[in-house]
């Protein structure tokens, strides 16, 4: 059986539209690797769909995108799609990356306890800054790219067959590279303003569970 990846990509407000767009790159990489891609985009990012795909398709990798809280992740129109003591056991045997606020604090450890191989996420709010003029074409927003670059490295590194620990390290390094570049070179005021948020995200990104876990078989 080949590897497969499940995405949730709600698009009901500007932040979720940004996160959804950032994931286009990861979906492309997954398709290049001939992985089965299950993309719950927009209105399809509903709890019943997530549970159905987890149950019937058993993806190796799950990439959640959307709003969240310490014990939950939300989908379309902020419907709760994953919650502690509710349905986290459905993520058993998967590697998870949650680009959602704070779910690494309580939901992440609960998922690992319930059998998830690894859980990468954030144990506090994930924050990012965007330029208002680019709200309808987030793919061109240079400010948001400072955040999407490090975040996307989690998904693309895992898809290449590297471990969860490697994915985390590469993402951390990318955050650090962006921070160092902003400190050491002449940048526009709006770029410098992102420093406080990049540092916050880097410091609150967590990798839980088995850091040696990877989605591609060694055989």
């Amino acid at each position: 059986m080949g590897s497969s990846v499940l995405f949730t990509r709600p698009r009901h407000d500007y932040p979720t539209r940004y996160l959804a767009t950032w994931n286009d790159e990861i979906i492309e990489r997954a398709k290049e690797k001939r992985m089965d891609v299950f993309d719950l985009e927009g209105k399809r990012a509903k709890r019943k769909n997530v549970e159905s795909f987890l149950q019937h398709k058993q993806p190796n990798l799950v990439l959640f995108n959307g709003h969240g809280g310490p014990d939950l992740i939300m989908g379309h129109e902020n419907e709760i799609i994953m919650r502690v003591r509710n349905n986290e056991s459905m993520l058993a045997k998967t590697i998870v990356y949650a680009l959602a606020c704070a779910s690494g604090a309580i939901l992440g450890p609960a998922c690992v306890k319930a059998g998830a191989r690894a859980y990468i996420g954030y144990d506090a709010d994930f924050t990012f800054m965007r330029l208002n003029n680019f709200r309808t074409h987030p793919q061109d927003d240079s400010l948001a790219k400072l955040f999407s670059g490090p975040s996307n490295l989690i998904g693309t590194t895992l898809i290449k067959g590297h471990t969860a620990g490697d994915a985390y390290k590469r993402s951390q390094k990318a955050f650090r590279r962006n921070i160092n570049r902003l400190i050491s070179s002449e940048t526009r005021p709006e770029e410098s303003a992102t420093l406080r948020y990049l540092l916050w995200d880097m410091q609150h990104q967590v990798c839980l569970g088995n850091k040696e876990a990877k989605i591609v078989s060694d055989i």
């Binding site: 932040p15 809280g69 003029n133």
Partner: peptide, 13 residues
């Protein structure tokens, strides 16, 4: 800058 938005938490931006 005044031409930016900051996304923070589930409440939006």
């Amino acid at each position: 800058p005044d031409d930016i938005s900051v996304s923070v938490g589930a409440d939006g931006e």
